[in-house]
């Protein structure tokens, strides 16, 4: 049961943190339609996070989604390191979203067959939204990659910044083996090859080379984060910390 709770929190935390990151673009997008697009994606992700948190709260008992999101410290967060990386420029945000959506699409395809009915239902509901995110971010990677010299260079910089955080998605955390064994969770190692193949196809169209032999960071899924998460939580949790139990 503990493994299932941790696994559900991992799914929740990753979507919450990426949602929080994307929401930083609100009012700052390069053009209005794209500002709306990235904040819509943010909203979808926070919706998914809420579903996972509500389910985790039920499994834990005697708590609720807000307490879990607002009152845990960074070492308790189990999100992917990729999700907490800074927005950088538009290209970096797009690439982070693309890497993630490509992974999440493959993940949800399998999670919707989970033996756990609630996890399966959340995935089945969310995968349609993920397909929107995947199309949108994938198209932008291509558009920027084979766009102007400037946009191409920015995509190369983005790949340089983010590639080292992609390996973690496919390394199972300690709580993942039990949930995979009981067919409630997805075996992430099996997603690596299909993910890489999809990325290669997109990168080829975007005239970007897939990096090789890059050191891969990991630890986020086990609560060991980059320096960025603390700052995100400081902002995200401020109201509940300053005014405990406040609601609106």
């Amino acid at each position: 049961m503990n493994a299932k709770i941790d696994y559900t929190l991992h799914l929740a935390d990753t979507t919450l943190i990426l949602s929080q990151r994307n929401s930083e673009w609100c009012g700052h997008g390069p053009i209005l339609e794209q500002d709306i697009a990235i904040t819509n994606i943010s909203l979808d992700l926070i919706g998914q996070a809420r579903n996972f948190y509500q389910y985790a709260a039920k499994l834990i008992g005697n708590t609720d989604e807000d307490k879990i999101a607002y009152l845990r410290t960074e070492r308790e967060f189990k999100n992917l390191l990729l999700a907490e990386q800074p927005n950088g420029d538009w290209g970096q945000t797009i690439l982070r979203q693309y890497f993630f959506s490509q992974y999440q699409y493959l993940l949800y395809q399998q999670l919707q067959n989970s033996k756990d009915e609630q996890l399966a239902a959340i995935a089945a509901k969310a995968i349609k939204e993920t397909s929107y995110h995947l199309r949108w971010s994938g198209e932008w990677v291509i558009r920027l990659g084979e766009g102007t010299d400037e946009s191409h260079q920015r995509m190369l910089n983005a790949v340089n910044e983010l590639w080292g955080y992609t390996g973690e998605m496919f390394i199972p955390a300690t709580y993942e083996s039990p949930v995979v064994k009981e067919n409630t969770g997805v075996s992430v190692d099996s997603l690596k090859q299909p993910w890489l193949e999809k990325v290669k196809t997109i990168f080829e169209e975007a005239t970007i080379t897939v990096p090789e032999k890059v050191f891969m960071h990991s630890g986020g899924k086990e609560g060991k984060h980059t320096e960025h998460l603390g700052f995100i939580l400081t902002e995200l949790q401020y109201m509940q910390r300053a005014y405990p139990n406040s609601e609106w």
């Binding site: 339609e33 794209q34 709306i36 697009a37 819509n40 994606i41 979808d44 929107y132 199309r135 949108w136």
Partner: peptide, 8 residues
Amino acid sequence: ISEFGSTA
């Protein structure tokens, strides 16, 4: 114009 609009 855009796949994303004023609401989800």
